[in-house]
Design a protein around this nucleic acid. Structure first.
Length: 434
DNA sequence: TCTGGGGTCCTAGGACCC
DNA sequence: TCTGGGGTCCTAGGACCC
């Protein structure tokens, strides 16, 4: 079966540009939370040599010198663009898997290879016209081949944004010879080093290697990659994403904190947000993990970091219960005398709330319905009036530890705008900062 | 001065059981 | 010198990805 990977080009930067066409041709970078690292670059910014993942303070001068537009990330906006792109892509193929915020796998049973290129260009045009976002299309027999084709489509200007890996052994070999193992999807630094030790340098070397040998060297993960390179699918296109297994909320602090009360407020804040996500997805949990740590980049400073888990014997989505569990865990492992840089909360052992109510009728006594109504009220108010409009006092008032988002606050005027429409269907209104 | 956040999967090894 | 052999389950940590 012919498969494809559609991957948005410079996604976050493209979103900012789609919102503000005056930015066309201007170098753009988008920063991570806390304005820490570069997580997206327009092609102009890439040409300036600004690396992906670079700490912003290391590239600030280059940005200033070349008038690079710098944005704090605005994930609610990127999420809206993502929905729009996915909507268009999902219509193009029988099989569809939204793989990440800016990528989707498509499956085309019965599609002749000869028609693949033209199909790819049609999809590209369709997404560009309806969303303003440019995507690259990589096509082949397996997901791993699609990934490689996609990378080539992005880097090879002559491809017009579409590359098909031929299914003929000779054509595939020609393609794979020019690909370094480290550039294969699923081959990280560790595996690439091990492969190199055995003379496996290119994707073609890996495809040709004895699968049993690769299995010993790199486990089932490596073996599957090798088979996929040969055109044998090991990873199907998964239509219905399985229920997620964990929810994590974590942030670095805007400045180091050492007081218990500050850490406690941050943990409370993250627990509230995690519980909110839980309710949005109609899930419930019995297990809460908190973690926190000092700044690992400050080598000379004394380091401490840990995680601690608290369990209960029923399932809940109540921010009060989850918040209290997080605080109990924190109190057990907090240590005085360190400068902490980051903290977070993880919820695991997730179940559907419907299942909970069906299979555990006794839950009605564990979670009073008045609490359910309270959670609904909190969610409704915050959805209507803005994030954190209602929150527990335990999340703090002064909140000196909050992340910074300097590039956002620089233009703190919030405006309402409407994204472009498809098929006359109005999209929900979004808030964002210009 | 300043270094993100949120996931998944696999494996090895220990605990425990028969 | 000699001290079974398999299983399963769970967990921590590593590796990788976007």
């Amino acid at each position: 079966m012919l498969r494809a990977l559609a991957d948005c080009n410079n996604f976050f930067a493209s979103c900012e540009r789609a919102l503000n066409p005056a930015l066309i041709g201007v170098p753009i970078v988008v920063l991570s939370n806390n304005d820490g690292c570069v997580i997206a670059r327009s092609s102009e910014a890439k040409l300036l040599g600004i690396p992906m993942g670079a700490p912003f303070f290391q590239v600030r001068r280059v940005c200033e010198a070349h008038s690079v537009k710098v944005f704090s990330s605005n994930f609610s906006v990127y999420g809206d663009f993502s929905e729009r792109v996915m909507e268009v892509l999902a219509k193009q193929a029988r099989d569809f898997e939204s793989y990440s915020i800016d990528e989707a796998f498509l499956g085309f049973p019965d599609m002749p290879e000869a028609d693949a290129r033209a199909l790819g260009h049609r999809i590209r045009n369709d997404v560009l016209l309806t969303t303003g976002i440019s995507v690259s299309i990589g096509m082949g027999a397996t997901k791993v081949l699609c990934k490689l084709a996609n990378e080539r489509a992005k880097s090879d200007a002559e491809s017009g944004g579409v590359i098909v890996v031929p299914s003929s052994p000779a054509g595939r070999e020609e393609f794979l010879k020019g690909v370094k193992t480290r550039d294969i999807w699923g081959v990280g630094k560790g595996l690439a080093t091990r492969l190199r030790g055995h003379g496996i340098l290119s994707a073609q070397d890996l495809a040709e290697a004895d699968p049993a040998f690769i299995r010993r060297l790199a486990g089932v993960v490596g073996e599957r990659i090798a088979l996929e390179l040969r055109g044998i699918p090991c990873h199907e296109i998964i239509e219905n994403a399985e229920a997620r297994k964990s929810i994590m909320v974590s942030r670095s602090f805007g400045r180091p904190v050492s007081d218990f009360i500050d850490l406690s407020e941050a943990i409370a804040t993250h627990a509230v947000r995690a519980a909110e996500k839980l309710r949005q997805e109609n899930l419930a949990t019995s297990t809460v993990t908190v973690f926190f740590g000092t700044n690992r980049f400050q080598k000379e400073a004394e380091q401490y970091g840990t995680s601690e888990t608290e369990e209960i014997d029923f399932l809940t989505d109540d921010l009060g219960v989850i918040g209290a569990m997080a605080q109990r865990a924190l109190k057990r492992v907090f240590k005085e005398g360190y400068f902490y840089k980051k903290a977070g909360v993880i919820l695991t052992e997730l179940s559907s709330k419907d299942v909970v109510q069906e299979t555990l009728p006794g839950l009605g006594t564990a979670v009073p319905s008045s609490r359910n109504r309270l959670m609904k009220a909190v969610d409704t108010i915050n959805a209507k009036l803005g994030k954190e409009m209602v929150r527990p006092a335990s999340t703090g008032f002064e909140r000196k530890w909050k992340s910074k988002s300097e590039q956002l606050s620089e233009n703190s005027q919030t405006q309402e705008k409407v994204l472009p429409k498809t098929n006359g269907v109005p999209k929900r209104r979004i808030r964002f900062h210009e």
